[in-house]
Design a protein around this nucleic acid. Structure first.
Lengths: 116, 116
DNA sequence: CTAACGTACAACCAAATGGTTGTTCATGAT
DNA sequence: ATCATGAACAACCATTTGGTTGTACGTTAG
């Protein structure tokens, strides 16, 4: 998971992901459009590969890059889980808000315990 | 966006996010549970804050950390967009697959052009 | 066969990261 | 008033990152 989010944290890598999700492009084809060396792009692809976000398939002397949607979905699931926790908290807070006026009334009335 | 994914790329930071999505915890309270110094945790919170994933609210001498779900949703949207591109490609590939048998037949029949 | 292409990989470098300790400051507790 | 707590910040260090160049190797084209 660390590797996935780290891979996504770079704009060039996210762009590579965008471009190779549509068609399978060779590394050198990808490299043409970035203001950096071929080797640098190669490294970016390697980072994406270690994260499981893309896989490479050799065809002739080219290496085609294809995005792997499974890793993408795992990353999304991680974010979803945090959001669910948040939604859960919101629900519990709504319950507390509904109870709060009663608590205030009890505090004002000087009641000792719910059963008293 | 870079900052958001980078913030998410560390397990400690994701854990801080998980814990402070439920209740608002002070930085020192958060720091108690990690095998590192208070200052290190402080830095992790700062990274999350720069990414917009949490905000801090001072209460007394404590600083309560609360997660900011908006940034989380923006990150999710970025992943969703890539997945949509992928789904779109799958749809287009399905269309191509539907056409392919005809192409094969034409190739086998030695036809010159669709209109020939 | 030879030249060009696409890739892999190593060595190197500057900058960023993730951690440490120490100091300072504001707030709360005794 | 004093002491302890929670936090901010700076300085420092080792490691990782993102980039470079150079070299080597398999594959395709002339």
């Amino acid at each position: 998971m660390d590797r996935v989010f780290h891979a996504l944290s770079d704009a060039t890598r996210r762009d590579i992901l965008h471009r190779s999700v549509e068609g399978e492009l060779s590394v050198s084809r990808l490299a043409e459009d970035y203001p950096m060396s071929f080797a640098a792009v190669q490294k970016h692809v390697a980072v994406l590969e270690r994260a499981g976000l893309v896989s490479k398939e050799r065809r002739g002397r080219e290496q085609l890059v294809r995005t792997e949607p499974a890793a993408l979905r795992r990353a999304r699931a991680a974010l979803d889980r945090i959001e669910e926790l948040w939604i859960g908290r919101m629900g519990r807070m709504a319950l507390l808000v509904a109870e709060e006026p009663e608590t205030d009334r009890r505090a004002r009335d000087g009641a000792q315990a719910p059963g008293a």
